[in-house]
């Protein structure tokens, strides 16, 4: 599955990093503590978080993530969008809570 498929299948709004939509999704991770995510997120994963500030992009790059999904109606800062575009890391938005979206992704085989 590619990052673009996530957006279509789960109704996520892509707001930045469109040039990275061909990234391959390998598993998922939920977390809002950056040290925890940096240590434990699977390489190539989709990351579900409520953090919208620009430092999430460094974590996404270093864990070679396929996409970052901001859940619960959270939105990225302008600086985050700009960095995501530059680094080709897709950022997607979901109105759902992390738990609910993660359950759907898991059930659909994103593991």
């Amino acid at each position: 599955m590619q990052a673009s498929d996530l957006a279509t299948q789960f109704n996520l709004t892509v707001v930045a990093g469109r040039e990275g939509l061909d990234r391959i999704v390998a598993g998922g991770h939920c977390g809002d503590l950056l040290s925890e995510v940096m240590a434990n997120a699977p390489i190539g994963c989709v990351w579900l978080t409520i953090q919208g500030h620009q430092n999430i992009i460094a974590v996404a790059i270093l864990r070679e993530m396929a996409a970052v999904v901001l859940t619960g109606g959270n939105v990225p800062d302008d600086a985050t969008r700009a960095k995501a575009d530059q680094e080709k890391i897709p950022i997607m938005l979901s109105g759902q809570r992390t738990y609910d979206l993660a359950g759907q992704l898991y059930a659909a085989g994103v593991v």
Binding site: L33, L34, S35, H53, N55
Partner: peptide, 11 residues
């Protein structure tokens, strides 16, 4: 902002 977990040095 998700910093300050106190896991940096241990990790």
């Amino acid at each position: 902002m998700g910093f300050g977990a106190g896991m940096g040095l241990p990790n």
